[in-house]
Computed example of a mutant assay.
Amino acid sequence: MELKFEITVIPVSDVDRSKAFYASLGFRLDADFTTARGLRVVQFTPPGSAASVTFGEHLTEQEPGSARGLHLVTPDLATARAELVSRGVDVTPIWHDRDGIFHWAGTANRVDGPHPTATSYGSYVSFDDPDGNEWVVQQVVEKLPGR
């Protein structure tokens, strides 16, 4: 069986404000349509990604801002962070997990600075969208075998 992850729906309170935010990140706008019955679908794809985020009207019953741990990956975390900052995003400084394996929820176990020995999978920055949906950007220079 072949299955590819295509989209995740994120809960937002103001669709147009969110649309402007994701456009400001440099994400590609793939769709923005409203059905006759009021279902609105807005879809964006991050640069270089095969998966997209979707938000709109009547798409989810989740509370706006309740999406946590949405992950993006980049081979150059410092450059990605600098570009996000230049686009007006409030991004954390680079951090890593004290245990060195993925990361805990929220800010628990965070240590300032990049992981001292890992070039891949160990260093992160994070930011929230206007509703508080949490995005984590992880540095991955070289993927583990089979990924």
Rank of each mutant, 00 (worst) to 15 (best):
M1Y: 09
M1I: 11
K4A: 12
F5V: 01
E6Q: 10
E6T: 15
I7Q: 12
T8F: 03
V12L: 00
V12A: 01
V12P: 07
D14Q: 01
S18M: 06
K19I: 02
K19T: 08
A20W: 03
Y22E: 03
A23K: 06
S24W: 00
S24Y: 09
L25W: 00
L25V: 05
G26H: 15
F27I: 05
R28C: 00
L29Q: 07
A31I: 13
D32W: 05
T34H: 03
T34Y: 07
T34L: 08
R37L: 14
G38H: 11
L39K: 09
R40K: 04
V42N: 10
V42S: 08
Q43S: 14
T45D: 00
S49W: 08
A50D: 04
A50W: 03
A51G: 04
A51I: 10
S52Q: 06
V53E: 02
T54H: 11
H58D: 13
T60A: 01
E61F: 01
E61W: 06
G65R: 00
S66H: 05
S66E: 01
A67N: 15
R68T: 12
R68W: 15
G69N: 12
L70W: 12
L72W: 01
V73T: 15
T74L: 06
T74R: 07
P75Y: 01
P75R: 02
D76F: 01
D76H: 11
A78N: 13
A80Q: 06
A80S: 11
A82Q: 15
E83M: 11
L84D: 03
R87Y: 09
G88R: 02
T92V: 12
I94A: 04
I94Y: 04
I94E: 11
H96E: 04
H96D: 09
R98D: 14
D99W: 10
G100T: 14
G100I: 00
I101N: 09
I101Q: 14
H103F: 12
W104R: 11
W104Q: 15
A105N: 10
A105V: 05
G106D: 07
G106V: 01
A108Q: 11
N109Q: 14
R110E: 10
V111S: 11
D112Y: 07
D112K: 07
G113Q: 02
T117L: 03
T117E: 13
T117C: 02
T117G: 11
T119E: 08
S120G: 13
S120H: 10
S120M: 12
Y121H: 02
S123N: 05
S123L: 06
Y124M: 03
S126K: 05
S126C: 09
F127A: 06
D128A: 02
D128K: 05
D128F: 09
D128M: 01
D129M: 06
D131C: 08
D131R: 01
N133W: 02
V136I: 14
V136L: 10
V137C: 00
Q139E: 15
Q139V: 04
V140P: 00
E142A: 13
E142F: 08
K143F: 15
K143M: 09
K143Y: 15
K143H: 12
K143G: 08
P145T: 07
P145S: 01
